[in-house]
């Protein structure tokens, strides 16, 4: 992306500018080091021979990766986490996207109040929400904790993210587009499908992605609302409490690698899509005109 060079940036505004810049660059390095130091150790110990993580490092070995794959309990926990994230995200994306429409468009006088209500489940400590749900399920409703109680627990804090993100996008949405579609004879459903949804899709996807991320790693609310099964975070917690083995480091490393790969792919795909759309966009435009 070549941006035009700003002539003002070239002027030495102050003699301090250059050293300041070097200082800031160093600081950014320190910050990134700080962020990745524990992750580096986490990954390192997944390849270590020793059962208890510590230095000096002996290895490398893939022993813990083999152990991880043959550990039925661990694999089941991973599978539960994936199912949980999938179900909770699907539901909260659906419910949250629907809710955003009347919230933005019906001219609610209490839209500000609604914002606070949707922000509360995000900002209130998870321990509070988890305990409140546990008491509510067990004492008030008298139901047993199960996979579905955790799903509900997760929806409580993932759905508000979807609502807020999709609402933000809808607020900037030019309704003339929709009205134009209606003028041209589109039914409301058709206008929704072909005009509105494609335009707010990035926000819906962003909301869903955040929902998956949060759900997969959520420990506190899960801990209080989960039945006999364990999810990956609750399994890791038990391991940390009662003697962790590098197997969990191996899982975390695989998860991290998987995500980075996925992100990389998405990145490449987005770039590719941009290039393609530039080519095809021009061709399609020409066809339409011609």
């Amino acid at each position: 992306m070549a941006e035009g060079i700003d002539p003002l940036e070239l002027m030495p505004v102050s003699r301090m500018a250059r050293p300041l810049r070097a200082l800031l660059r160093g600081w950014a390095g320190v910050v990134l080091g700080f962020l990745y130091l524990p992750i580096a150790f986490m990954v390192l110990f997944s390849f270590g021979e020793s059962r208890t993580p510590g230095l000096p490092f002996r290895g490398p070995t893939l022993h813990w990766y083999q152990e991880m794959l043959s550990n039925g309990v661990l694999m089941e926990a991973v599978w539960t986490s994936i199912q949980l994230a999938a179900v909770a995200t699907t539901l909260s994306t659906l419910i949250g996207t629907m809710a955003a429409f009347p919230l933005v468009r019906s001219g609610f006088r209490s839209a500000g109040a609604a914002r606070i209500v949707f922000t509360l489940p995000i900002m209130l400590p998870g321990a509070l929400i988890g305990i409140a749900l546990l008491i509510f399920f067990r004492r008030a409703l008298g139901v047993d904790l199960s996979f579905w109680t955790v799903v509900m627990g997760h929806i409580v804090f993932t759905m508000p993210f979807v609502v807020l993100i999709v609402s933000a996008r809808l607020q900037g949405f030019d309704r003339n587009l929709e009205w134009a579609a209606a003028d041209l004879g589109a039914s409301p459903a058709r206008a929704m499908r072909h005009v509105v949804l494609p335009l707010i899709a990035p926000a819906i996807v962003a909301g869903a992605l955040i929902s998956v991320t949060l759900s997969i790693d959520e420990f506190v609310i899960t801990f209080f609302t989960v039945g006999p099964q364990s999810t990956l975070p609750t399994y890791i917690y038990t391991q940390i409490k009662f003697g962790v083995t590098p197997e969990v480091n191996a899982v975390a490393t695989v998860l991290l690698l998987g995500t980075v790969l996925l992100l990389g792919l998405a990145w490449a795909a987005a770039g590719q899509a941009r290039r393609l759309s530039r080519i095809f966009g021009r061709r399609r435009a020409r066809e339409r005109i011609g």
């Binding site: 986490m42 890791i236 991290l256 995500t259």
Partner: peptide, 9 residues
């Protein structure tokens, strides 16, 4: 990216 790895770990 750090958000994508286990908070606990």
């Amino acid at each position: 990216v750090p958000f994508w790895t286990s908070y606990l770990l």
